[in-house]
Simulated scan of single mutants.
Amino acid sequence: MEKLKFNILAGLFVLSSISAFAEGHLPANIQTAFQKLYPQATGVEWEQMAGCYVAEFIVGSHEVDVWFNKQAEWVMTETDVESLKKIPNPVAEAFMDSTMAGMRLRDVRIITFPKHPTVIILEVEQYNSDREFQLFYAPDGKLLQSLDVTELGGEIYPELFLNDF
């Protein structure tokens, strides 16, 4: 029941954030900052989450989410690469040697920041269960953090990494 309540609240939050831009209220400074970073991006959809403006678009076969704070400063980029073959070998090897390797791999994301090291997130779930985990790796294969996100969902947002936003 708690999970259902959370999913309903999360859905309402997403709907309200998307509708904020349905009428074209994206601040010009945010749009300008985005176009400087990704001048070739097309099919961009905007939403507001966790106090940031988020541009979502496709590059090649990868979904990309670019986060900006209210001052139009780039906060982070999340690239969904969906495969262990597209991340640094030390990370893939560390995961394959871990106890989590026996779980179903759901998602692989690379998170980049303007002033902080890159983080690779592997999201896994136990077979025949609702248990989900996010594994945070440094590019050298060091496991930085493991989060049980069973009740929280798998949303990635800046506060997971940085405390200065």
Score class of each variant (00 low, 15 high):
residue 163 N to M: 13
residue 21 F to A: 05
residue 24 G to K: 09
residue 150 T to I: 11
residue 110 I to T: 15
residue 11 G to H: 05
residue 148 D to Q: 11
residue 86 K to P: 00
residue 110 I to G: 08
residue 28 A to K: 15
residue 127 Y to L: 08
residue 58 I to K: 15
residue 83 S to F: 14
residue 73 E to M: 03
residue 72 A to R: 02
residue 50 A to M: 04
residue 45 E to S: 09
residue 64 V to Q: 11
residue 72 A to I: 01
residue 111 I to W: 08
residue 20 A to M: 13
residue 26 L to T: 03
residue 146 S to A: 10
residue 111 I to M: 13
residue 100 M to D: 09
residue 1 M to S: 10
residue 64 V to G: 01
residue 120 I to K: 06
residue 128 N to D: 15
residue 33 A to I: 00
residue 140 D to N: 15
residue 7 N to Y: 04
residue 42 T to Q: 15
residue 155 E to S: 09
residue 41 A to E: 05
residue 51 G to K: 06
residue 90 P to W: 02
residue 139 P to M: 03
residue 25 H to R: 10
residue 87 I to V: 14
residue 37 L to R: 11
residue 58 I to N: 12
residue 145 Q to S: 09
residue 37 L to W: 06
residue 127 Y to H: 11
residue 68 F to L: 00
residue 124 V to A: 13
residue 1 M to G: 06
residue 49 M to Q: 09
residue 160 L to M: 15
residue 63 E to P: 03
residue 87 I to M: 11
residue 55 A to M: 01
residue 90 P to L: 08
residue 46 W to K: 05
residue 110 I to W: 14
residue 115 K to Q: 11
residue 151 E to D: 00
residue 50 A to Q: 07
residue 103 M to I: 04
residue 44 V to S: 06
residue 73 E to L: 06
residue 154 G to V: 05
residue 1 M to W: 05
residue 82 E to L: 02
residue 101 A to F: 15
residue 22 A to Y: 09
residue 11 G to Y: 03
residue 161 F to W: 08
residue 90 P to D: 01
residue 68 F to N: 00
residue 41 A to V: 04
residue 74 W to C: 01
residue 12 L to H: 02
residue 53 Y to M: 04
residue 21 F to Q: 08
residue 133 F to V: 09
residue 86 K to V: 07
residue 43 G to D: 14
residue 153 G to A: 07
residue 124 V to L: 13
residue 92 A to R: 10
residue 149 V to C: 10
residue 39 P to D: 00
residue 132 E to M: 14
residue 139 P to R: 02
residue 70 K to R: 14
residue 84 L to S: 06
residue 138 A to R: 13
residue 51 G to T: 03
residue 5 K to C: 01
residue 27 P to F: 05
residue 110 I to S: 13
residue 22 A to V: 00
residue 30 I to L: 01
residue 141 G to Y: 11
residue 57 F to Q: 02
residue 120 I to W: 07
residue 84 L to K: 08
residue 100 M to E: 11
residue 48 Q to N: 04
residue 14 V to I: 13
residue 23 E to N: 13
residue 59 V to D: 14
residue 146 S to E: 10
residue 140 D to V: 05
residue 95 F to C: 06
residue 48 Q to H: 03
residue 107 D to T: 13
residue 114 P to Y: 12
residue 72 A to V: 03
residue 121 I to Y: 02
residue 34 F to P: 00
residue 17 S to K: 00
residue 9 L to A: 04
residue 120 I to H: 05
residue 129 S to T: 06
residue 116 H to P: 02
residue 98 S to C: 10
residue 33 A to D: 02
residue 152 L to E: 10
residue 100 M to K: 08
residue 22 A to S: 08
residue 10 A to E: 12
residue 155 E to V: 00
residue 11 G to C: 06
residue 26 L to R: 06
